[in-house]
Amino acid sequence: SGELYCSLPNPRNVHFESINMKNVLHWSAPEGIGDGVLYKVKYSVYGVGKWIRKPECRNINSTWCDLSNETSDYEEQYYASVKAFLNGMCSNWTETTRFNPLTDTKIDPPMVSVSSTEKSISIILTAPEKWKRSPEGESVSLLQVYPGLQYNVSVLNKKTKKRWFFSVSNNTLVVPWLEPGTAYCVSAQIYVTTPLLHSGFSKEYCIATLKDKMA
């Protein structure tokens, strides 16, 4: 914009929202400003001297911008910044805090698959994948990103309401000595010790142990 002095109020609450390292910049419109505001976005790698514009987020009216592609190297840290425009006026750039994809992302619960025998349940857990540029892109499990990744597993006996908790590092768990012909519900959570991160618990997956053939 031609105006050097920017009198428009700044965009507010500029921050990254990140899930499985899909890193999306979000902000709120400047205070007291109605429709018609446009924005542009830039980002920088911490420690590197230049700001880089994001062409796809130039003159946009939405209040988010997907920077996953630009922030996919989780060994780096980033800043992003937003500027608002309205009727030839502009705001100042408003920056995020320093964004560290490794520690600042949220992790989805694991996928859970269960099978049963008469007296046991087998549980297979799959960690979510890191965001990738395209479906054909290489899949990277969060297990590779966080070597210390573990699973907390909850198993509920629907009849007695008794619940057990297990903490496992590998992705399979067999729960033995169960009652035949009984429904059990399994839910699991991801837990990373360093850096300290954990997902929510997955929804419950219920299955019944087979009936006792001898009974």
Partner: peptide, 8 residues
């Protein structure tokens, strides 16, 4: 955190 991420 750069040091810790690298160490871990």
């Amino acid at each position: 955190d750069i040091l810790l991420d690298w160490m871990e």
